[in-house]
Amino acid sequence: MKNLLLGRYIALSSIIHRLDPRLKLVVTLLFIASVLLINNWETLIFLIVITFILMKLSQIGFKIYLKGIKPLIYLILFTVVLQVLFKAGGEIYVEWGIIKISSYGIEHGIFVFFRFVLIIILSTILTLTTKPIQITDAIYFLLKPLKLFKAPIEDITLMLSIALRFIPTLLDETERVMQAQMARGVTFGEGNLLKQMQSLTPIFLPLFANSLNRAEEMANGLEVRGYQVGKKRTSYRSLIFAKKDGVAFFLMIIVIVILFFLRA
C-alpha cells in the first residue's frame, strides 16, 4: 500500500519544485492536452524527449516514476491490445474474422501506450514536486472567476485540501485493516474473481465506518475552531509569479507551437 504514489510529495528543491504551483497546474493540463495531439512519430518522439527533460529536471529518480505506472500497466496493455486487434488500415498482416492486425493498428497501439505513459508521468511530476496544499492554492486561484457566479470556492478548496491530506492516512489505515484481517486468516489475491471481491468486504466496511467517524471528528474540530461555511477566508501563503515562471510558460507555448507544426 505504501508503494502507491497517489497524493505523495517528495521534498526536494529542483527548479520544477520551485515553480509557481498555479503555473505548474496550468502547464500540466496543457501538456496533457498536447499529449492527445500526438498523431505521428515526430510528435511522439518530441513529447517523449520533453517529458524526459522534465523528469530529469525534477531530480526524482526514474524508478519512482515507473512505480507510478506499475499499478496501471494492465489497463494500459488492455487498451493497447484492443487498438492493435481492432483498428484496421494500412498493410494487413493477420486477418481472422473481425480481428485484423494491421500496420495502422500496431502504430496506433504504440501511440496509445505512450499517450497513457506520458499522461501518467506528467501528472506524477506535478504531484511529486508540488505540496498538496500548494495544489489546492493553485486550484483556488484558478477557480476564482467562478465566484462571480456565487460558487462556494473557499469551501470547495477546503474540501479538496482535506481530501488530499487524508489520502496517505487512508492508505496507512487500509494497510492496517488488511493486516488485521490477514491475521484472521483472509488471503488476498487468491481464488476466482467473486472470491477476491468477497475478501474486500472485511477491508472496506471498517474503512468506511472509520472514515465516517473521522469525518465527524474533523467537522467538530473545524467547528470549535470557528470555521463557518461561506465566510471569506484569507491565506498566509501568497503565491508569487516570478521571472522563471514566465520563462517556463513561454517555453510551454513554444512546445505547443512546435507540436502543431510537427503534426501530420
Binding site: R176, A180, M182, A183, R184, G185, P202, P206, A209, N210
Partner: peptide, 20 residues
C-alpha cells in the same frame, strides 16, 4: 503463513477497527 496464522493469534492495536 496461513498455517502459522492459524496457530498464532494476533490482536492489533485498536482491534475494533477490524470489526465489519
Amino acid at each position: 503463513l496461513k498455517n502459522i496464522r492459524a496457530d498464532l493469534g494476533m490482536v492489533f492495536q485498536f482491534p475494533e477497527a477490524q470489526l465489519f
